[in-house]
Design a protein around this nucleic acid. Structure first.
Lengths: 249, 249
DNA sequence: AAGGGCGTCTTGTTCAGACAAGTTCCTCAC
DNA sequence: GTGAGGAACTTGTCTGAACAAGACGCCCTT
C-alpha cells in the first residue's frame, strides 16, 4: 500500500508529463484536488510538495500552482548507482574490475568514513561503460566493516550497491556529493581514451546507511560530454551548494 | 514575523552547528520539541523537514532523528548570484564587464528563454574575480523584456540580480542548473589565465521569475579547483539528476 | 478608457487528534 | 547467557478546521 499522497503525486505527475497540463498552465486548486481524491487538504499539500521538490511545479502564495517543466526525473538510488541510473535511461551499462585489494585507509578516507586511525579499507577500481563506450572511472574505498560483503561479490557484478542490499542488508540511505572538474591523469586518460589533461567531471560521494554510518567514499570521473548533472531549485529550497574548492580538502 | 516552523528550524540548526547535538547523536523527539516550543507536532514536522532538505539531519520511521552533518549551508539566492554567494562566504567579489550588446537570439536561446523566433536578447560577457583572482567567465543572454533594465545598470554593478530586483521588481524565483566539464576555449583560457583545453567546471542555468517566465540563460565557467558543487540527498528526496550529455542539447 | 477599490479565490501557517508502522529496550523463559 | 516476546516510544500518514496573506478579477467611479 503506497501512501495516498504518493498516489496523488503520481497522478499529477502523469498528467503533467502527458501534457494534460501544459508548461505554464495552472494546476487545479488544493481544495479541488482534495475533493477529486477524497483526501484532506493537508494530504494534497504533501503531494504537491513532492512535485515541487522535483522541480516540476512552482507556487506562490495566493496564486494557483503552475507547471514549470515537463520531464522525467530520477530517483535517489540512481544518483548513487551508475547501473540503476543507466538502466532507467535505457542504456546498457557494463563494468570492468581493474583492481580490488585491501589496504590501510588514507587520513582523508579515515576521516570521511569515520573510521579509527589505522583501519583498513577495500580499494576498488572500476571502468564503467555505456553501450560499450568507456564513460567513467570509479575509485571506491569501502569501510572495513562492509569490505567482506564486497569481496564476496562476483567480478562481473553489475551493481555493487544492489548486491550489498540483497546479500547483506546494507542499504544506502544518505548521500553527500562533491562535484568539480579535474584534468585527466595518465591512468584516467588511457582508460577513458582521452588525452591526458583533458577535462573530466568529477563526482566524489560519501554513501551512508540508515544509521548514518558511512559505507563508501567514491571518486567517479566522467568523460566530458558523457553526463550532465541537473538541479532545480526554488526560493525556499536549496538542494545544491557551491563551495570554495581550496577550503574543502 | 517569520513563521513558527522557521524559528524552530533555526533554533535546531543553531544547536546542531554549535555542536550541542554531535554528529550521529539523536535529536529530541517530535513531541518533546512540540512541548518545548509550544507548537503542535505538525509544525515541528515542518521544521525538521526543512533541516532534512538541507541534509543536516536524517530520519527513519520508528527511530529518533539523527544529526548527519555539522556545516553551514547557503540559500537559494546564492546559487544564482555569484556576488551573494561570495559575500556569504567572506570573499571580496568583483567583476569586469567585457561586452554588452543586443543581438538576435540563437535558436537554443529562444527555446530556453521561451521567446518567439527572431526575438532579441541582451548578450553580456563578464569576468568574475574572488579577492582579485579571476575565477569565472560568465556569458548571459537576458530575455528582451528584461534587457532594458540590465542596460540601465552601471558598468561596475556588483550583482545584476540584486539590482534588477531593486530597480524593476524582477526577482529570481525558480532555477534550473546543468553542470558539466568543458575544455577552456582560447577566450576562456586568456581570461582565466589557464592553458587552452584545461578543465573548466561549467554551470549553465536558467533563471525564471515567480510566473515561471525565463529571465536569463547563463553559461558560467569556473576555473578548476576554484569551486565545488555540493549536494545532499536521502532516500525519498532527489534534488540532483544525472543526464546523458549528448541528448541534452 | 483608465484607474482604484473591494470581494473572492488560493496558498501559507497552525492546531489537535487519531491510527499505522517501525524501533528500542526491558523482561522473562529456556 | 541467550533468545523470544512484548510494552513503550517514535516517526509516518491522514483528517478537519480555522485564520492570515497574497493574487486576481470584477465593478464602479472618474
Amino acid at each position: 500500500m503506497t501512501a495516498l499522497y504518493v498516489e496523488i503525486a503520481e497522478g499529477l505527475r502523469r498528467s503533467i508529463l502527458s501534457g494534460e497540463y501544459a508548461v505554464g498552465a495552472r494546476l487545479p486548486s488544493e481544495s479541488d484536488l482534495a475533493l477529486r481524491w477524497s483526501a484532506s487538504r493537508g494530504t494534497v499539500r504533501q503531494a504537491v510538495a513532492l512535485l515541487t521538490s522535483e522541480g516540476l511545479i512552482g507556487s506562490r502564495q495566493g496564486a494557483r500552482r503552475i507547471v514549470l517543466r515537463r520531464e522525467r526525473r530520477h530517483s535517489f538510488a540512481e544518483l548513487h548507482s551508475f547501473a540503476q541510473w543507466a538502466q532507467a535511461m535505457g542504456y546498457r551499462a557494463t563494468s570492468r574490475f581493474l583492481h580490488r585489494e585491501r589496504r590501510g585507509a588514507t587520513p582523508e578516507e579515515a576521516r570521511r568514513l569515520a573510521l579509527p586511525e589505522g583501519s583498513g579499507v577495500l580499494d576498488v577500481l572500476r571502468l564503467r561503460l555505456l553501450d560499450g563506450e568507456p564513460v567513467m572511472v570509479e575509485r571506491t574505498a569501502y569501510a572495513d566493516w562492509a569490505a567482506p560483503t564486497v569481496e564476496a561479490l562476483p567480478v562481473d557484478c553489475a551493481s555493487i550497491m544492489d548486491s550489498m542490499a540483497a546479500e547483506a542488508g546494507i542499504v544506502a540511505h544518505y548521500g553527500e556529493h562533491l562535484i568539480d572538474a579535474v584534468p585527466a591523469g595518465s591512468d584516467d586518460a588511457r582508460l577513458l581514451r582521452v588525452r591526458r589533461g583533458s577535462p573530466l567531471l568529477r563526482q566524489r560521494h560519501l554513501t551512508s546507511n540508515p544509521d548514518g554510518r558511512p559505507i563508501e567514499w567514491t571518486d567517479d570521473r566522467y568523460r566530458a560530454g558523457s553526463v550532465t548533472f541537473n538541479v532545480s531549485n526554488s526560493v525556499g529550497t536549496a538542494p545544491l551548494i557551491r563551495d570554495p574548492g581550496a577550503l574543502l580538502m
